[in-house]
């Protein structure tokens, strides 16, 4: 009855693969594509926050800090609600990390504030006794690259249709038009900070890395 199958080994092998993958396909693919969609109220990061994300990557925070809260009571007690995949939909790349020398940061915006981050980045062990995190003083003088961050926003809007507004266009003119908004965001952060150097830089129209990074950390909620 099935001898015709055995006479066509290539067809037989393909048919077996299809039958076996079918179960996997109907179980995995729908859940996967549903979970990967952005959450309903998810907003893409502002340009300042994107610049901060670049600082986060550049200074390799991911080597010691994860951004993924697993659904275990011990983790949600300490860090807040467990992470959903839809929350990372606009993160390219996501910064889950896999090493927790320091605590998870996925919702750090909920329980740390601008001035805490400022004091902590200058001297971590003074704020958290026993902390082995190094100080990141250079972030107070280095200038963050907000122009590239803007370019990133425009790129993900064009390529991945990330919902930035129609005013995000390529070209110098569009950037000059958007720049005051970034500086206003930076000023809001700098106003809550103590460091005079940072305030001065922001007043001059430059964004220190620490301001961008704090904007990014505050946006992690």
């Amino acid at each position: 009855m099935f001898h015709w199958l055995e006479k066509n080994p290539f067809f037989f092998a393909s048919a077996i693969s299809i039958v076996i993958s079918f179960a996997g396909l109907i179980e995995i693919v729908p859940n996967f594509s549903k979970a990967a969609r952005p959450l309903v109220d998810l907003k893409p990061r502002t340009v300042l926050e994107l610049a901060g994300k670049e600082v986060y990557k550049k200074d390799n925070c991911i080597a010691c800090h994860s951004q993924l809260i697993r659904p275990f009571k011990s983790e949600t007690d300490r860090y807040g609600k467990y992470s959903l995949s839809g929350e990372y939909a606009y993160d390219r790349p996501f910064l889950w990390g896999s090493k927790r020398t320091g605590p998870d940061l996925h919702r750090v915006g909920n329980y740390r504030t601008t001035d805490w981050h400022e004091a902590h980045m200058k001297n971590p062990s003074k704020i958290v006794p026993g902390s082995i995190m190094p100080a990141y003083k250079h972030q107070f003088t280095n200038v963050a690259d907000i122009e590239t961050a803007y370019a990133e926003a425009v790129t993900v809007r064009n390529v991945f249709h990330t919902p930035y507004g129609p005013e995000f266009k390529s070209g110098k003119a569009a950037w000059e038009a958007h720049k005051p908004k970034v500086l206003a965001d930076a000023k809001k952060i700098a106003d809550e900070m103590q460091d005079e150097g940072v305030k001065k830089m922001v007043a001059e129209g430059k964004v220190p890395e620490i301001v961008a990074l704090i904007a990014y950390l505050n946006s992690l909620k």
């Binding site: 007690d77 807040g80 609600k81 909920n110 329980y111 740390r112 504030t113 601008t114 001035d115 805490w116 809550e192």
Partner: peptide
């Protein structure tokens, strides 16, 4: 006057 303390209500 010191700074902002975040809310911990949900935790």
């Amino acid at each position: 006057k010191i700074g902002r303390m975040p809310a911990f209500g949900s935790m």
